[in-house]
Structures are given as structure tokens and as C-alpha cells.
């Protein structure tokens, strides 16, 4: 469960202040599937980064799974990210010199999980995301859709409760994009909380809950 109260995020550019988020209150239950939409510059990515503990709000309070994570130190935030949050990016952000399998394994390596257990989880993930045949390939030998599947498998490798995707289909053609969405939706069906930022109304409409941001404020919050 996620509870945001009065979240503010202000960027200073020169002596101008850009309010990326203004007084955002948001309650997300475990297992919800929501899309975040809105015009460019409305603060979608900023909100997602704050949800993912990559960025800190300037004011407000963030509760994740019952714990206040607003004032945690950097290393504690890193630990929470590792254990509870998975990221999917528009540009995949796979490490180019590592194979698909090594990329998927990376969060488990950072967490210090022993190789046998890693191997077990890796085999399972490769199977679930249809990547068995691609395990030994490097990102430049994979298609965009395959790259994004690797990125999703990587995000899932530590068994997070929250998956955050910032325009996950932005770099894919329509068909591949829908495939990737289907993969994310399976994560949701298995009980994960999924938040997707998108510009594509068709993709945004797939979510049960649709949040609309305008100028850093929540302008709409509709559930289907």
C-alpha cells in the first residue's frame, strides 16, 4: 500500500522555481493497476521517480507498505528499492556488455543472493518471459520488445511489490507495445502493484485506474 500526502517537488532553474508536483495526495492499494497520463511536463516522471524512491519530495509524506520512507538515508532507500520496487524504462537501460541472463540477474547479484538460488530464479524468469532462447544474447542482438521483456524480468527478479514503468512502450511499435503491456499486466494479475506512465490513450485505458496529471496536480482519478 502506498500513501502520498501533500507531496511537493520544486526544481530550481537559475532563480526560477518550477513546480513539478504541487500538493499531490494519492492512495494506492496493493495489487492496483494504474496508468498516469497527462501533457508533457505535467510531472508524470517526477511522480514516478518519487514513488520509486529515486527522488525525494521537497515537502509531504510518503508511506510505503506501512513504513514512512520520507526521511530514510540513501543506503536505506537503495535497500528498499532493491527489495520492494522494480523499474521499467522507456529506453530499457540494459547494460550493453552483459547478456540477457546477466542483466536479469543484476539485482540479485547486488543483493548478494547466492549463485544457486540466482540460477533457480533466473531459469524461472527466463521461462516466464519467453527468453530461454535469448539468455546468452547481448542487448544489441535483441529486438526492442525482447529488450523490454528482459528489463521487466530484471525488475521482477527480486519479487517486488511495486512495478513502475515510465513510457515502457514509448520506444516500441504498436504491436510490440501491446505485447509488453500484456507482460506487465500478468505481473499485476499475480498480485503486484503496477503503475504505468504513458502518452498513448489506448494503453492508458487498459488500466483499471487512470490518473491524470496537469501542471503537477492530480486533475483526474478515474476507476473503470
Amino acid at each position: 500500500m502506498i500513501r502520498l500526502t501533500g507531496i511537493e517537488r520544486v526544481f530550481r532553474v537559475g532563480d526560477e522555481a518550477v513546480h513539478a508536483l504541487r500538493g499531490v495526495d494519492l492512495l494506492i492499494e496493493q495489487g492496483e493497476y494504474l496508468s498516469i497520463m497527462g501533457p508533457s511536463g505535467s510531472g508524470k516522471s517526477t511522480l514516478l521517480n518519487i514513488l520509486g524512491l529515486l527522488d525525494r519530495p521537497d515537502a509531504g509524506r510518503y508511506e510505503l507498505n506501512g513504513h514512512d520512507v520520507t526521511g530514510l538515508a540513501d543506503d536505506e532507500l537503495a535497500r528498499v528499492r532493491r527489495e520492494a520496487i522494480g523499474f521499467v524504462f522507456q529506453f530499457f537501460h540494459l547494460v550493453p556488455r552483459l547478456t540477457a541472463a546477466q542483466n536479469i540477474e543484476l539485482p540479485m547479484v547486488l543483493a548478494g543472493i547466492d549463485p544457486a538460488e540466482r540460477r533457480r530464479r533466473l531459469d524461472k524468469l527466463l521461462g516466464e518471459y519467453g527468453l530461454e532462447a535469448r539468455a546468452g544474447h547481448r542487448p544489441d542482438q535483441l529486438s526492442g520488445g525482447q529488450c523490454q521483456r528482459v528489463a521487466i524480468a530484471r525488475a521482477m527478479s527480486m519479487g517486488p511489490t511495486l512495478i513502475l514503468a515510465d513510457e515502457p512502450t514509448g520506444n516500441l511499435d504498436r504491436h510490440t507495445g501491446q505485447e509488453v503491456m500484456a507482460v506487465l499486466e500478468r505481473v499485476h494479475r499475480e498480485g503486484g502493484t503496477v503503475a504505468v506512465v504513458t502518452h498513448d490513450p489506448e494503453i492508458g485505458a487498459r488500466a483499471q485506474r487512470r490518473i491524470r496529471l496537469v501542471d503537477g496536480e492530480i486533475a483526474g482519478d478515474a476507476s473503470a
Binding site: 540513501d74 543506503d75 537503495a78 535497500r79 528499492r81 537501460h93 547486488l110
Partner: peptide
């Protein structure tokens, strides 16, 4: 840069 950012996003600490 991107790789380091990614490592941090997936939970690497500064020490790591």
C-alpha cells in the same frame, strides 16, 4: 552514467 544510474535504481548503494 546510464549504467551507474540504473545500478542505483535497482538498489546498488553508494558503497557498492
Amino acid at each position: 552514467r546510464k549504467e551507474i544510474g540504473l545500478l542505483k535504481a535497482i538498489g546498488a548503494t553508494g558503497a557498492q
